[in-house]
């Protein structure tokens, strides 16, 4: 328990101390909200979709969580190369607990980031149906955050250095994001893309967020919860296993 706490608080402190990083990582979601929100808004409306910002905001919140979470997971490589990982790995505690604590810390950071983006999108004109369902939205944020921190950790446990980083961004994060329904609705998509979207866990996260915020859902909120919950469990297990196998 104490190990989990130490790893969690460490992530949090590192995040809160790097103001430049917090502000820097808000740039992208803000840009997306403005450029896409105002850029595609009129077309979306003309096509009968309604207010695009309502549709887009949950997707952008999910996006910021996806990025922050995956990156904090991948930071394991950073710890490995700048040494702190060695200090943790020689400590007389279970690596499973280290991984869980670290992941929860990363996930907390990502949720905080998600909440900040939510507040920003409120300024940009996003209006959730009711405040009562916001805790539900935060639950979905937490699930997305935990999932991608765990995936980031799993990937990082397999890599020796940062060289693979660009690869991960281009061949993992970007496709996961663009094929999650964050930017466009799934209805009427070609079969291939619809299928890929269906096996993309982020799609269920985005859908769950939309369901909680604006009451519109593609898969149904129950299915969203079940799918996300199980994928989180699977990747926590994989991440913990790979992390416990790290040798230096």
């Amino acid at each position: 328990m104490k190990t989990i706490y130490v790893m969690w608080i460490r992530q949090l402190k590192r995040y809160l101390r790097s103001r430049a990083r917090i502000i820097g990582s808000l740039g992208q979601p803000i840009l997306f909200l403005i450029a896409l929100g105002f850029g595609f808004g009129p077309i979306y409306q003309k096509a009968g979709g309604g207010d695009y910002i309502q549709f887009l905001a949950p997707g952008i919140i999910a996006m910021s969580i996806l990025f922050t979470a995956t990156f904090t997971g991948i930071e394991v490589i950073w710890d490995r190369q700048f040494g702190f990982l060695k200090e943790i790995l020689v400590a007389p505690v279970s690596r499973m607990k280290i991984m869980i604590g670290r992941t929860l810390g990363g996930a907390t950071v990502a949720v905080m980031q998600g909440i900040i983006v939510m507040l920003i999108s409120l300024i940009a004109g996003f209006r959730p149906n009711s405040t009562y369902t916001i805790p539900l939205a935060i639950l979905f944020m937490a699930l997305i955050a935990t999932l991608f921190t765990a995936i980031g950790t799993a990937i990082a446990s397999l890599l020796e250095d940062m060289h693979g980083f660009q690869l991960i961004v281009n061949f993992f994060i970007m496709p996961v994001f663009f094929l999650s329904g964050a930017l466009f609705p799934f209805d009427g998509l070609p079969k291939g893309i619809a299928l890929i979207a269906k096996v993309n866990p982020l799609a269920y996260g985005v859908d769950g967020l939309r369901a909680s915020f604006i009451g519109a859902s593609h898969f149904g909120i129950g299915l969203d919860l079940i799918v996300l919950g199980s994928v989180v469990a699977v990747f926590l297990a994989i991440g913990a296993y790979l992390f416990s196998k790290i040798q230096i």
Binding site: K2, T3, Y5, V6, R10, K13, R14, R17, S18, F82, G83, F84, L85, K86, E87, I88, V90, A91, P92, V93
Partner: peptide, 28 residues
Amino acid sequence: FGIVFQDPSIDDELTAMENMEYHGIMYS
């Protein structure tokens, strides 16, 4: 054992005290 590695292994973003505290907690 206690160890000082060839390469640095402290967390730069934490204070000296925090580094000591977290170590102490992990060693119960």
